[in-house]
């Protein structure tokens, strides 16, 4: 199994996140689409700048993680920073299936089926 940050020591990840662990990031789903609202500023933490460049077009949280070579957990924290300062906005998955409503809506399923048939 490949590990994208095999050489990344826990210390380095600790520095990137400012020592915070996940907590206030509960709202960021793996497929929440994030979009940059501003350009990277000089002197900005390099990971923040990389996210702003990457997210010029909408990008899922997992894509940000893959492109930065960082675990999803760490990326959630970095994104939360940028969302808090308004540099990034989030487009959350709407009406996703849940325990109480386990099925996607008929409209969504129809859209998926049409697109799959056209693949």
């Amino acid at each position: 199994m490949t590990r994208s940050h095999r050489d990344e020591s826990p210390d380095r990840l600790h520095v990137i996140t400012g020592g915070r662990s996940s907590g206030a990031d509960g709202a960021l789903d793996a497929v929440t689409l994030v979009v940059a609202e501003s350009a990277p500023a000089p002197g900005m933490q390099s990971e923040h700048a990389a996210i702003l460049r990457l997210c010029r077009s909408p990008t899922a949280v997992v894509e940000v993680a893959a492109h930065l070579g960082l675990p999803v957990t760490v990326v959630r924290i970095l994104l939360t920073d940028l969302i808090d300062t308004g540099q990034v906005t989030a487009r959350h998955p709407v009406s996703a299936p849940s325990r109480t409503h386990p099925f996607a809506s008929p409209d969504v399923l129809e859209k998926v089926l049409v697109a799959l048939h056209n693949l």
Binding site: D29, T32, L33, S57, P58, A60, R91, P93, A96, A104
Partner: peptide
């Protein structure tokens, strides 16, 4: 990149 209009991820 996705289109700028992309808003709903499944």
């Amino acid at each position: 990149g996705l289109p700028q209009t992309a808003a709903h991820a499944l």
